[in-house]
Design a protein around this nucleic acid. Sequence first.
RNA 1: GGACGUAUAGUGUAGUUGGAUAUCACUCUGGCCUUCUAAGCCGGCGACCCGGGUUCGAAUCCUGGUACGUCCGCCA
Length: 593
Amino acid sequence: MEIIRPHVEQVLSPALQQLGITNENWKSMIAPSREKSMGDLSLPCFAFAKQLNMAPNEIAEKLQSLIENNDIIDEINSTAGYLNFKASANWLADYVVSGNVRIGDALGGLPTGAKSVLIEHTSANPNGPFHVGRARNAILGDTLVRLHRLYGNEVRSEYYVDDMGKQVAVLAWALANLKPEQVDDILSDRESINDMWNNKPDHERVRWYQAAQVLRNDDSVKEGIEKAIADMVHASENGDDEVLAAFENAYQPVLDGMLETLNRLRINFDEFTKESLFVTNGDVSKIMEKLSTLEIHGVADNGAEYLDLGTRGLKGKTEFYFRRGDGSSLYATRDIAYHIWKFSQCNNLINILGEDHKLQSKQVSLTLNELGYDSPEVLFYSFIKLPEGKMSTRKGNVVFMDDLLEEAKAHAANLVREIRTDYSDVEITEIAEAVGTSAVRFNIIKVSPDKGFTFRWEEALAFDSDSAPFIMYSHTRSRSISNKCLALGITFDIIDNSKLQNENHEIPNSMYELLRVMVTHNDALSKSVEQNRPNLFANQLLNLANSYNGFYRDCKVISNGKVNEMYLAVSEIASKLMKSGMIGLGISPLEQM
RNA sequence: GGACGUAUAGUGUAGUUGGAUAUCACUCUGGCCUUCUAAGCCGGCGACCCGGGUUCGAAUCCUGGUACGUCCGCCA
């Protein structure tokens, strides 16, 4: 509870001086109380023991006796060597109803003049539909975009389109050379496409890609295909307009299909940047020339060039190749050009990458440093696997995001139909879509990114206490109260705040607990944003919803047809916090469910 | 073989960067709907991978194991 820190320091400072503690290291020792029942902030007194030649609990007791309670901190206790400070419930209530808790705006509408950041995420090869593994990137990335906006940062989200690599070349080759019957024939032993996605281009065209991959492993034809593909890749790297246009015609519909899926998850981009841009505009060759002049530069027998990053902290294989023997660039080289361009747009860069990119990212980062640039911040995530093992498009054991979203929606619809018999089909569909997509997002966000997890249908479709619907449900309760009060002619806006303040209210314990969560809301947000860990804020929102439920149980806003204005004020502000927080996580705040 | 990451109740997870009786949820179990949506609330059971070290104090830091994941292409 950072808001009371200055007040704690103020009363603590003279007391510590009296004991003979003069330097101010103690300020950094004040931390949120681990035992929430004991206090909001605590000072562990163990470190003073030696200097003062006293037992920690004696020191805590002594300090306690030297400090008087005040209006803000109305409880100071000492136990087990800790000095605990508790904020006054009345002060917290005043603080909250006076509108001091920053609500924030996850849509970025509140200009705060804070940092501006460019977040690159997803950037998946446009060769097939999203499966839930690939989607972890998009969901983490978009959530980070939203949270930064909620926090007040100016954010630009980018998708880096890989429009010139081998994967796109394979797709383009297949579309130009294979007839539908051939593709069906080659893939005859596979599960056929889900009828629902028959006309969705990412699902359609990925079959051409898969068929080509099969042929590339077929000894009787592979030589000619490899040659044709290599020629296309080579031409694209030399900026051949015709080939690049053919590539674009091949992948753009696929990309559109993929974006349709993301759009359903409320994931959007401000800008798409094509990899080929940095080849055709000459940036890549300029960078390669510059890298050639560096001290750590080296040349292989066939003329390929690399940097030896061993002296820059890279372990294992230290050569980082940036130019092939034939003079062309590599993916990483182009990525360096892209990063330099990104730095020209924005000072703070964040990348969302799978853990398989760790080495590559390190190489790019060290090379950027070599050229005088900063390193981007990177959020790495582990892969999602299936109970049967790794997800692999090749083996056919994938769960497509499109299928997951349909299942989630259907599951939600069944649930709504069961418990809300008075809802219309239109309402049910709307609610089911919101609940399904929100639940899918939240299940991925709530887990720490560096933890690999196993996708299980029953977990993905569990809509109880640890899920988005739980949060959404608390929010609809608050909306329902609001609407009932409106019907009685009382709204939050017309309540006279000054009437609520400076009074000694009866504050039930569950309301006090809710207030405590509310005033730490922005502590959690700032930590989540500064450390690029969306799961921390997901947890905060669960706590907020949970404590709102306790408040809802004990504090009847409307009782015998009369509105308790204090309760209404707290409920409304909590409601706004839940709503903005949900938008920050990409969860749909509903009015009813 | 080397580099990096992960390891917490039966299951899934949190842990504010070294502090108190380790969080939450599922499962199991006992209770709560004639007043604001029971997708909810209240109670019970149950865990820090193994060994050493640093420290007043270690789930957290160091070190050695073990298990799992990822990488170690002039691929992307």
